[in-house]
């Protein structure tokens, strides 16, 4: 098994320095000895260590039930870790006061397999919704929404409602919504799971472009072809444990 230490010297450095405080400004996500046990007794994550530096593009792979979704739910503080630390952009989520949770969530853009768009709102309104419900003044909403809609290439479709769009366009809308708060990280849970291969590649290309703009991307996926072709960092989970953490890796283990 390829250990994280051999895969990435910089990562080795971070993991070796466990004694120093987990707050580090250039790591967007730090999971330290994280265990999650659900009330029904199921162990979803066991002793997970994961450090994602700013600007990284990380694939999270593993079979269903391996803990990918639980990990993402911990990051958006939908759930709290049973043990260990989850630190997002310097905030230890376990110590975060309830009132501070929304502020942290605005630093995380989430994208799902099923898009989660509001069916009666247009593309533009769906994106603007994320700003409206967080109390953004109206004058600031228009330029911000126009900008991200242009970024994902949906300016022409801005006035359409989700049912008039293709799956790829719906996912672009969701990505635009995730981007509109100018997040530090985008967490994408199987974003191409409902899309055909060609469209999937378009979405991946979009995420890569966003990554180039400096946004960290953490993407859970089953798409072996995409993962293997891109040779990015791959974190593999199995039965709640990180069994592999490699840079420039393929979907399956290669040694």
């Amino acid at each position: 098994m390829t250990s994280p230490e051999t895969a990435s010297p910089s990562l080795f450095g971070r993991l070796a320095g466990r004694s120093r405080p987990v707050r580090t400004s250039h790591d967007v996500v730090v999971l330290h000895d994280v265990t999650k046990r659900y009330p029904n007794g199921r162990m979803a994550l066991r002793d997970v260590d994961l450090v994602v530096p700013e600007g990284d593009f990380v694939f999270l792979v593993g079979p269903s039930g391996a803990g990918k979704s639980t990990l993402m739910r911990l990051l958006i503080r939908d759930e709290l870790a049973t043990q260990g630390h989850v630190v997002v952009d310097g905030d230890d989520l376990a110590r975060l006061r309830r009132r501070a949770v929304p502020r942290v969530r605005r630093k995380i853009g989430v994208v799902f397999q099923d898009f989660k768009l509001l069916p009666r709102k247009t593309v533009w309104e769906n994106v603007a919704f994320a700003l409206e419900v967080t109390g953004t003044p109206r004058a600031k909403i228009r330029p911000a929404v126009d900008r991200v809609i242009a970024l994902v290439g949906l300016t022409a479709q801005a006035a359409q409602i989700p049912t008039q769009l293709s799956g790829g366009e719906q996912q672009r809308t969701a990505i635009a919504r995730a981007l509109v708060h100018d997040p530090r990280i985008i967490i994408a849970d199987e974003p191409t799971g409902n899309l055909d291969p060609v469209i999937s590649w378009e979405i991946i290309q979009l995420l890569l472009r966003i990554n180039e703009l400096g946004v960290t991307i953490l993407m859970a996926t089953h798409d072996a072809e995409v993962v293997t072709a891109l040779r990015k960092r791959v974190v593999a989970l199995e039965e709640g444990r990180v069994i592999r953490d490699e840079l420039g890796a393929a979907y399956h283990r290669e040694d």
């Binding site: 958006i76 989660k116 509001l118 419900v133 967080t134 919504r177």
Partner: peptide, 16 residues
């Protein structure tokens, strides 16, 4: 679903 989206995009409890 609408409430879930509001939470995900970081709406505060009061706004929900």
């Amino acid at each position: 679903e609408e409430i879930e989206i509001m939470r995900l995009v970081g709406a505060s409890d009061a706004f929900i």
